[in-house]
Design a protein around this nucleic acid. Structure first.
Length: 788
DNA sequence: CTAGGGTTAG
């Protein structure tokens, strides 16, 4: 019954059954387990070759516990089982246990393969030094390295090389050992040269390889891509008929990273028509390409194609494909679709979390974004950067700065993008000192050549009133893009240098940079602040004719603003009626603001009607209307507008103004309740009135004072807290001191005039920040150039 | 029993 022949026959059957586990798939483990338990129940003891097979399958299916269990039952484990286990431990990241098992193995049974396995372990765990050290020890202990050894050690070397010298030394060792003709070794050597940036040497070696295999080609092509020589890589790819799927994938992702989306797509198409196998790597890159290039329709087509052709049973798409899809969908404003993909992913990693977080932050959905941020199982530098720059760009300056500091205290070194976010926060808050400190830190870290940080700095300096610093930065930045030009043009425009802004725009054209829609928004604002009506109209008309940019509603709003500020209401009306779309609230608001400034009640009332119709719950609609009546001296109408607002249950948006005097900060809350300090301010302004009159100042601001004298003074006071804040500060100031006023809402024409007036009357500088820009009043002049 | 190339987030 249990004759040796019979046992041998059974063993052979098990051996051939186990062979079915190869090549390894996700099903291999359960198959091996079934065969294994069959052996146990039928009383067959797996030993020798069969036992080692089982250990191997268990190890490679990441079931080390099973493998170890079998291993421990062996009385004297042979070198093959030991090699398998060393390899299993190191590939699971447990390099310590691997090393322990390595050291416990007696010298007498060790062989080259055993050393190779341990060296590979270090290579997989990215410890190049340990690879080389073990290689040296292997030589000392008289084991002969083979092709595998060289290939692996070279792989480890590639991790740590930073000079060509080391490459050359190893090159010599390889040649001396006689392995210089083995393609796999030469491939690894090429890869080492590539990794230390010696592409030229790599290419020389590559050309010397007699029998180039697919890997030789791939290594060389990807080597060019890694060293940013995409054209050389392409030349190599085009020069061979080999179907180098991996190399094509590397090239596509290289093109995507460099922003060469057209070429990436072109290769993808060629790949399809040439019948090169497309895998998840290709899909991932091309979906990411579509997301970056805003080719959403194509992206969705690829998604469908992948669904149709590659749908796998359980795990769905691979992790990176899903991650790229999440990005694709939020970029085309489908955050909820992105969320659905995210939720359905069987496995998520940090990249997935960062992708969905960016989606929410970029869509301005901060409540959900914050929730995600808190829930994340782990965070990295990018996570923080996404939050910081998102918060900054959406007006949460304080929170952005807080997060920036938190990021540092949690041990993350901020990258230039994070700095850009923090600097943008400073720009919003008018925190010039903090901004300067950040600039200094950038220089210390050697990050000051960064484009994004530089652009943020230009805006920060400009918004904080230091145009000169912005200009110096713009001129000294190592490279600039259209964002930099836009920022600098805006900087000049915001400070009333309308003509210089236009000159810079012309320079930009001369430098071959094409303007975008932001450029024209900036130009129109610059003209508006400086009263350059003709120029503004000219550029508005040229944007479609010369640059093919169709004006959006935001451009029309600025044109209306430009005309209205100059009192050209007929033209403004013409513009509104000639608009290709229904004018929205912003257009009417601009018109109303102009009417307020010029006291054009007839047109203003019409504008206000439309505005209130469109935004009945928007406090600004009523405040503008009431201020317009006030400007025209129609106090009852002004009061009625306020009453209408209250009757409709609209609260004036609570804001907050604060005054900083000699390190002391006074805060004024602005809402429908009257601040207790108001009475003191009121008294002071009453003292100021005769002084104003005595100086013969007949200000546009007269209504401010009349407001206060009117029956509605309390409500009006709360609406004009900025003026009051300044007055209050001046009241308590030692003479000659500078006053800073910060306001988190946009400064209005009334406030502007009031500050002008105050600076003249009291002979002091007044610095005001609002959400949009910086005002520096001195002797009635305002640095922002706004003319009202 | 051991090795080598490509993927995703601002």
């Amino acid at each position: 019954m249990t004759s040796p022949e019979f046992i041998r026959a059974v063993a052979n059957r098990y051996a051939s059954q186990l062979q079915l586990c190869y090549p390894l798939t996700s099903a291999s483990f359960s198959l091996a387990k079934t065969i294994h338990s069959h052996m146990v129940t039928s009383g067959f003891h797996p030993a020798g070759h069969i036992r080692n097979r089982l250990i191997d399958v268990y190890s490679k299916s990441s079931r080390i516990v099973y493998a170890r269990h079998l291993f421990d039952k062996i009385h004297e484990p042979d070198i093959v089982s030991r090699t398998t286990l060393v390899s299993a431990y190191s590939s699971s990241g447990d390099i310590k246990t691997a090393r322990k098992m390595f050291e416990e193995t007696p010298f007498s049974i060790r062989d080259t393969v055993f050393y190779n396995a341990m060296i590979t372990g270090y290579s997989r765990n990215e410890d190049g030094h340990a690879c080389i050290e073990l290689f040296r020890r292997m030589l000392r202990e008289d084991f002969r390295p083979d092709d595998f050894t060289f290939t692996t050690v070279l792989g480890g070397l590639a991790l740590v090389v930073n000079r060509g010298m080391q490459c050359k030394q190893f090159h010599c060792v390889v040649l001396k050992s006689g392995a210089g003709f083995v393609t796999s070794v030469l491939n690894a050597l090429v890869s080492v040269y590539v990794n230390c940036g010696s592409v030229f040497e790599a290419r020389k070696l590559f050309d010397e390889i007699k029998e180039k295999d697919e890997l030789s080609w791939t290594t060389m092509v990807t080597g060019y891509v890694k060293n940013d020589e995409l054209d050389a890589a392409r030349e190599l790819v085009d020069g061979t008929s080999e179907k180098l799927g991996v190399a094509w994938n590397a090239m596509i992702s290289g093109y995507v990273h460099r922003g060469r989306y057209e070429e990436a797509l072109d290769m993808f198409r060629k790949m399809y028509f040439m019948g090169i196998k497309m895998d998840e790597f290709a899909y991932t890159s091309i979906i990411s390409c579509c997301a970056h290039a805003a080719l959403f329709r194509l992206g969705k087509q690829v998604h469908c194609y992948v669904l149709r052709t590659e749908a796998k049973p359980t795990p769905g798409f691979s992790l990176p494909v899903n991650n790229a899809l999440v990005t694709l969908y939020w970029k085309c404003d489908k955050v909820d679709w992105a969320r659905r993909i995210f939720d359905n992913m069987p496995v998520k990693d940090l990249v997935s979390w960062n992708a969905i977080l960016s989606g929410y932050v970029n869509a301005g959905r901060f409540d959900e974004g914050r929730l995600f941020f808190r829930k994340m199982p782990e965070r990295n530098r990018l996570t923080w950067t996404v939050m910081i720059s998102g918060l900054a760009q959406n007006g949460f300056g304080e929170e952005g700065l807080k997060l920036f500091n938190q990021m540092k205290s949690e041990g993350f070194q901020p990258c230039d993008y994070a700095f850009a976010g923090a600097i943008t926060s400073c720009a919003m808050l008018g925190a010039l000192e903090t901004g300067r400190q950040l600039h200094a830190q950038l220089v210390r870290l050697g990050l000051d050549s960064s484009l994004s940080a530089g652009n943020a700095l230009i805006t920060m300096y400009a918004r904080c009133g230091v145009v000169e610093a912005a200009n110096v930065l713009f001129l000294t930045m190592p490279c600039v893009d259209s964002v930099s030009w836009n920022a600098m043009i805006a900087a000049l425009g915001q400070h009333g240098h309308g003509i210089q802004a236009l000159e810079l725009f012309e320079q930009m054209l001369g430098a071959g940079i094409s303007p975008d829609r932001i450029t024209f928004l900036t130009i129109l604002s610059a003209c508006s602040h400086a009263g350059l009506v003709k120029e503004g109209q000219y550029y508005f008309n040229s944007m479609h004719r010369l640059y093919g940019i169709t004006p959006g509603e935001d451009h029309y709003v600025r044109l209306v603003d430009l005309l209205c500020r100059a009192g050209k209401f007929l033209e403004a009306k013409d513009v509104i009626s000639s608009m290709p779309f229904e004018p929205g609230a912003a257009v009417w608001e601009a018109l109303l603001a102009g009417c307020r400034t010029h006291g054009n009640v007839d047109l203003g009332t019409q504008a206000a009607e439309r505005l209130i119709e469109l935004m009945p719950q928007h406090d600004g609609s009523y405040v503008l209307l009431s201020n317009m009546y006030a400007t025209a001296g129609r106090w009852n109408d002004a009061a009625n507008a306020r009453k209408l607002m209250r009757d409709r249950g609209v609260r004036k948006e609570p804001g907050c103004s604060w005054v900083e005097v000699e390190n002391k900060v006074h805060v004024f809350l602005v809402d429908d309740t009257v601040h207790p300090e108001v009475q003191a301010i009121y008294n002071y302004l009453n003292k100021l009135v005769p002084e104003m009159r005595r100086l013969g100042y007949v200000p546009d601001t007269k209504f401010v004072l009349q407001d206060i004298e009117s029956d509605h003074k309390e409500r009006v006071l709360s609406a004009h807290s900025e003026k009051l804040a300044v007055a209050f500060a001046l009241l308590k100031l030692p003479s000659g001191a500078t006053v800073r006023v910060f306001k988190n809402l946009r400064i209005c024409g009334d406030c502007h005039n009031a500050f002008k007036f105050m600076s003249k009357v009291v002979g002091r500088e007044i610095i005001v920040r609002d959400a949009k820009r910086f005002h520096h009043f001195r002797d009635c002049e305002c640095s922002c150039g706004d003319y009202w």
